[in-house]
């Protein structure tokens, strides 16, 4: 369900989704898994709250953009990887929270 260009205006305005997500779970200090992060549009909104973020996206070009934009904003607690939910592997430290943003 990802858009071709994640940064365009066909997503809710910044902060809106985050407010609704936090009605279900607080993100502060949490270890977060984000599925289908696209260009990191949402990731950059909450990364400062999280202890760490593992964000995956099947499109390598979008991951490259996500990494570049996160770096330019000084975000250093996010690991952006090319991947899908179906290929997640068990074995690492489990997550407190998982987010699917327009991506199931």
């Amino acid at each position: 369900m990802n858009r071709l260009q994640d940064s365009h205006a066909d997503y809710p305005p910044p902060g809106m989704e985050l407010g609704f997500i936090e009605r279900h779970v607080g993100l502060k200090g949490r270890r977060i898994l984000e599925i289908g992060c696209g260009d990191g549009r949402l990731t950059r909104q909450y990364a400062h709250l999280a202890s760490s973020v593992f964000a995956i996206e099947p499109d390598p070009a979008r991951i490259a953009v996500a990494r570049r934009m996160a770096t330019s904003e000084g975000i250093n607690n996010v690991s952006f990887r090319v991947g899908t939910a179906e290929r997640l592997r068990r074995g690492g430290e489990p997550f407190d929270v998982a987010l699917f943003s327009w991506s199931l």
């Binding site: 898994l33 592997r89 998982a98 987010l99 699917f100």
Partner: peptide, 24 residues
């Protein structure tokens, strides 16, 4: 899609929370 949700469940802590933002 069920498989994707199951794989995510397997890497979450017990009582962890999954939030989905979906088109209506």
């Amino acid at each position: 899609m069920v498989h994707a949700l199951e794989r995510v469940r397997q890497v979450l802590l017990p009582n962890a929370v999954l939030v989905l933002v979906q088109p209506h």
